[in-house]
Design a protein around this nucleic acid. Structure first.
Lengths: 378, 378
DNA sequence: CTACTTTCGCAACGCTGTTGCCGAAGTGCA
DNA sequence: TGCACTTCGGCAACAGCGTTGCGAAAGTAG
């Protein structure tokens, strides 16, 4: 049973009736989302939540009144009245997700189901300065919303819940302030979220690209606790624990690339020696993807052992260039480690993350929707 | 706001009124425990929980009826009626904690406050076989309870809530079944919890020694999210996230010692190469504690970056032998890494874990009490 | 057409935290 | 000493939560 919650937020942890109500509503919405177009019956919702059927009826009635849920046919009878299938109303809400990368911005609009209903891309120079980038991102979002939603007023059935922005480099998720984006020190300390909120007039959430991707995967149905490892121009991780992104006390968690796995190894750009990122990318440069996979596997196995997660997902351009090599290479190291440490249930599976290049933008949109479905923080 | 909950337990996450009630009660009890002998007023409880003063009054009234809480004086007035101070009734419950090590067993009885009210030690050979060890542990617990509580019947104010057992090596916390305790392969698959429950007739909880120690530290007031690193005959970690022990999906989290930090390094007992444990202990053997600390620091920094915790606590015999060397050595590496990665708030503090040799046994006792205070699983 | 099964909403209920109110118990000043 | 004031904390009424009891609705099976 979860009413969100982590970290030093043990204060203000009291649950009153409104909190209970919104928690259960979010839980039901999350299950409805998970059921997708097939929908789910009231009785199954009751089973899955542990609530009584009557409670589910009341909760879903409220959700139907708010226009978030609708009846959608019925199941086959099992000897009595057939169960009515409920389904999320996809158009009841939308969110924009923007993936700001070093050289381009990709924006999507998703509906409540998570389906992409609009997309745009444009080149973008992260080094062009804060004002220019904020303006570019804002315009991108505005134009896309104009195209897709036709400027529906807030509160309408088709309205916009907010904008999620995912970008590389460390940042403070809670305050929405960037630290130094790797390679672009001029961003250090820039309050991106507030700047965009002022400019756009809707709620804005910012997060690391890896966290957005991980959230997107979690929403798309990946297991309860997993790590998403992204190998592109850099190496980072997004951690999902119990269905929610783990961001840590200062929202800096997932610093995976600068994990040292070779004491006194080659110097990394960060100043340390023997970081996975440096070793792994060097191997890729040398044209030795198998070695890169082995190195990545060692770091992944460290992570698996430390957190006892149930799945490792790989993504990023470098992985996409040779998926089988990376999956089998990483998988082999992880499996070998599990065998040696005597994990009884066998090793943790390693797969390529589904979703492809658009995954980060989709996940960014989910940053906005997450609280509605009870996935706000872990 | 937390009603426990992580991992794949998103099912059965519905919260009804009894669940809400027990959650809030546990929350209040936890705050009362944190206040210790000084106690805490109703209004401060209200502020800290976010509940209204009236709700706190009702909750504490129920707790007083159950004999868990009592009024204990009043605070100085601030111009009006002085606040009444509430306090946990220490004798309202007790728990036994047993620390089973390779060569000895140490048992303690703690009260609701966590204060040790009885202690025993005896030599123990973990290799003597399951029956002998179970019998020895059971008798140790029984005799200690007889001494301290005088055989109070269950349900009495002084009665025993259960027995927590902490021991080295991997095990399944949920089922209470041991995996292969390092060096004692004959334990593999032994259902220790069930055997002890049958023998003792009270609830039994088993966990890794590092998890028990970490829980004990969390209860003793250490921050919301930290790592306890134990360097003794082996090297392990207990992770606390948001006040609760993070055990992971298969309760195997905290596998810190076999984190690889030296690819293709020296062979470790586990079969891998370049594990921190092997490198660190080898340095200790060579009489180079500073190098051991540097190695440990690298691994600790990996962990800090990955999870973004707020504190690192060091413990174990090897650390106790040269505490300053380890604290300064680990601290230096962690701080250097934080500086390079541009964490703005400065580095994570590194300290020696308070509690000393008895900490694991005390933490084991807290395993039993944890659910009562809302710390059951993270 | 009848009997049976199963779903699901209405109504009454118990219990939660909340609100409004008032007595209790202090301080501070005349 | 007395009075005004502040603050705490319990009593009572209340709104809202999920739960229970029950019956109408909507199917299947014979």
């Amino acid at each position: 049973m979860t009413v969100s919650g982590t970290a030093g937020r043990r204060a203000h942890a009291g649950v009153n009736l409104p909190a209970l109500r919104s928690h259960n509503a979010a839980l039901v919405l999350d299950l409805l989302r998970g059921a997708g177009a097939e929908g789910i019956s009231r009785l199954e919702l009751a089973e899955r939540t542990g609530l009584t059927p009557q409670a589910v009826s009341k909760i879903t009635a409220r959700l139907r009144e708010r226009g978030l849920v609708a009846e959608a046919g019925r199941q086959a009878s099992t000897g009595g009245k057939p169960r009515t299938v409920l389904r999320l109303v996809p158009d009841a809400g939308h969110a924009v997700g923007v993936h700001v990368d070093r050289d381009e911005a990709r924006a999507v609009v998703v509906d409540l189901d998570g389906a992409v209903v609009g997309e745009r891309r444009r080149p973008l120079d992260l080094g062009a300065g804060a004002d220019a980038v904020v303006e570019a991102v804002a315009r991108e979002a505005e134009e896309l919303v104009g195209e897709v939603l036709g400027g529906c007023p807030p509160g309408s059935a088709e309205s916009l819940a907010g904008v999620g922005v995912a970008l590389p480099g460390p940042l403070d998720h809670r305050s929405g302030v960037l630290h130094r984006v790797t390679g672009f020190p001029e961003w250090d300390g820039f309050p991106l979220r507030d700047a965009l909120t002022r400019r756009l007039g809707v709620p804005v959430v910012v997060d690391k690209d890896t966290n957005a991707a991980a959230l997107g995967l979690a929403v798309a149905g990946e297991g309860g606790s997993f790590a998403y490892l992204h190998l592109g121009t850099g190496l980072g991780a997004g951690l999902v624990i119990g269905g929610s992104v783990h961001r840590g006390v200062r929202t800096g968690a997932g610093e995976f690339g600068h994990q040292v796995i070779q004491l006194d190894g080659p110097v990394c750009g960060c100043g340390n020696r023997g970081c996975v990122e440096a070793l792994c990318l060097a191997a890729v440069e040398r044209g030795e993807p198998a070695e890169a996979a082995r190195v990545l596997g060692a770091a992944a196995a460290n992570l698996v052992g430390l957190l006892d997660i149930e799945l490792v997902l790989l993504g990023g351009r470098t992985v996409a260039a040779a998926p089988e090599v990376f999956v089998s290479g990483v998988s082999a190291v992880v499996a070998a480690r599990a065998r040696r440490e005597g994990m009884p249930d066998g090793a943790v599976p390693v797969r390529v993350a589904p979703g492809g290049e658009r995954g980060v933008a989709e996940g960014a949109a989910q940053l906005v929707l997450a609280p509605m479905f009870g996935r706000g923080d872990g």
